[in-house]
């Protein structure tokens, strides 16, 4: 089984996770830039973070046979901090880079005027760079937030097939299905969405434009939720080709619209160095 996790924050994960992901069939990931759990206080800490998403992390992933891409954006939560607003001005440099396959995560957190401004500007940047967008939907007031998000997306003029709306649930999936955008589901322990609920949604709404991710990060989360959902699909009677569509072909089709997806077989080359550093420790 081959799996593409379209949303996972590997900078927060260990090398054990990379090994387990590979063993579970994960061969490619997209890491959206997002909040780090603690607020950043300057534009420079964002650019260092973006540099790591484009440098150290893909190098680390390659050591374990996994192809790493990223999405770049000013996230909605930090868009509210005036110290970080300057990130919008450096984004064009990063949106030109090879492994950047979308603008994201953008969207709403608390639906403030600052979030409106950041969302609108970044949708315009995506149109300008011909990139898809990864849109985060708010955890609080999700249905209203999703409707408002879809309105802003429509007004921006970006084609709906370039938009992936993420963190959906039973109450928001139909809204996005009708919009023509792609639908993303984050499978989490306890919250957001479970494997079994996901299988029911796929039975009810079909598998077209559907993406499943682990959204694993620094919080309580499970990087193997993609594989567990794939297993739950098989157990519920979906065939292998349909599982491959959801777990591989759909994310490849969505992010492939960037023209920057590079999925040549990743050779796990333990001798490679990144800026002279290796994930190996001394003496190995």
């Amino acid at each position: 089984m081959r799996i593409f996790d379209p949303h996972i924050h590997m900078t927060s994960r260990t090398t054990d996770d990379y090994e387990a992901l590979y063993a579970a069939g994960v061969r490619a990931v997209v890491e959206p830039s997002f909040w780090l759990g603690q607020p950043r206080t300057s534009v420079d800490s964002f650019t260092d973070y973006f540099d790591a998403l484009l440098g150290w992390e893909p190098y680390r992933a390659a050591q374990f046979g996994i192809r790493h891409h990223c999405t770049i954006a000013l996230n909605p939560k930090e868009a509210n901090d005036p110290r970080c607003a300057g990130v919008l001005d450096v984004l064009p440099r990063y949106l030109a880079k090879d492994r950047v396959v979308a603008v994201g995560e953008i969207g709403y957190d608390s639906m403030t005027p600052e979030e409106d401004e950041a969302l609108a500007r970044q949708l315009a940047l995506a149109v300008e760079h011909g990139l898809p967008v990864l849109v985060h939907t708010p955890h609080r007031d999700k249905a209203a937030g999703t409707r408002r998000t879809l309105d802003v997306v429509r007004e921006s003029g970006i084609p709906p097939e370039h938009v992936l709306v993420d963190h959906l649930n039973e109450l928001t999936v139909a809204l996005v299905a009708d919009s023509g955008c792609w639908m993303g589901f984050s499978i989490y322990p306890d919250t957001k969405m479970s494997e079994d609920r996901m299988v029911r949604i796929l039975k009810d709404h079909g598998t077209a434009r559907m993406l499943v991710n682990s959204a694993a990060d620094w919080g309580r989360s499970d990087p193997l939720k993609t594989r567990k959902t794939a297993d739950a699909m098989l157990a519920a009677g979906f065939d292998e080709d349909t599982v491959d569509q959801v777990m591989w072909r759909n994310p490849v089709a969505f992010y492939g619209q960037s023209g920057r997806l590079d999925l040549e077989d990743v050779e796990a080359d333990g001798s490679a160095l990144f800026e002279g550093n290796s994930v190996k420790r001394g003496g190995e």
């Binding site: 064009p92 440099r93 030109a96 880079k97 090879d98 023209g259 920057r260």
Partner: peptide
């Protein structure tokens, strides 16, 4: 140059 320089590889 800021937009084209990074794109040269691809």
């Amino acid at each position: 140059v800021r937009g084209v320089f990074p794109a040269v590889g691809r």
